[in-house]
């Protein structure tokens, strides 16, 4: 086992507004954690820090014992909260683009996942609906053989059927030697996927625990606990 991700006292401000406030979080290897909070709670900022796209003002953050930097970029597969592929690309260009960027990218795996999601390789990215673009990005992220998958709102703007497909994709492609940290504000759809749940509010973790124990202790679903924690937000 061991720890795949550890954040200690991570803070980040934008123009005097604190997005992350001395945030502490630990994720064990081989587990799926839901990072839950309303819009503006700091979820996206935190994931960007993990992905090495934002430098924290203070605090430490390590991935598999390595401080976030060049080395950890090869360990982390990051799904941003918006499409990052160029609109002029075709799906097959996107595969090549990922293949050039990431050594651990498996083209065959990407093609297999895209087929599963019924995305054609010849399709131009801009011709895909928002939901399809989200699926495309997710397929590319999971075609990397990373240690840690960091997914920002993977269920984003998709319809209920697409959500089920995305949940299936995550379950099928989750490997015991990897870990997943994902954010969502649609808890009910996805809570059966979590080993752990962490609730983030105003840049701080206000509650964290094993999902099954949280249910047992409180006699409530993670979704209901979420509503309770954020009722004043």
């Amino acid at each position: 086992m061991g720890t795949i991700l550890e954040a200690k006292g991570v803070s980040k401000s934008f123009g005097g507004i604190k997005a992350l406030n001395a945030l502490d979080l630990k994720l064990e290897r081989g587990r799926i954690m839901g990072l839950l909070g309303p819009n503006g709670s700091g979820k996206t900022t935190f994931l960007k820090v993990i992905a090495g796209l934002l430098r924290p003002d203070s605090g430490e953050i390590s991935i598999d014992q390595n401080p976030v930097g060049l080395k950890t970029k090869s360990l982390v597969s990051y799904l941003p909260d918006r499409n990052t592929l160029y609109p002029w690309m075709k799906v097959q260009d996107a595969i090549e683009f990922y293949s050039d960027l990431f050594e651990d990218f498996d083209e065959d795996k990407a093609r297999e996942l895209l087929e599963l999601m019924k995305i054609k390789e010849v399709a131009p990215v801009k011709s895909l609906s928002k939901g399809m673009q989200e699926k495309l990005n997710l397929c590319l992220v999971f075609a990397r053989r990373a240690r840690l998958y960091v997914l920002d709102e993977p269920l984003g703007g998709t319809d209920p059927v697409a959500r089920e497909k995305i949940i299936d994709l995550i379950i099928t492609n989750f490997r015991e030697d990897s870990s997943i940290l994902l954010t969502t504000h649609l808890v009910g759809n996805i809570e059966r996927l979590f080993d752990d749940a962490a609730f983030i509010c105003k840049g701080e973790i206000v509650l964290q625990g094993n999902a099954e124990e949280l249910r047992l202790d409180r006699g409530r679903s993670i979704d209901e606990i979420y509503r309770e924690v954020f009722k004043d937000e």
Binding site: I32, I171, F174, R192, L193, F194, D195, E212
Partner: peptide, 14 residues
């Protein structure tokens, strides 16, 4: 079993 029930494989392991 995880795929059939759409549940985290760690939960099924347990």
């Amino acid at each position: 079993m995880a795929e059939k029930t759409r549940v985290n494989p760690n939960t099924i392991q347990r």
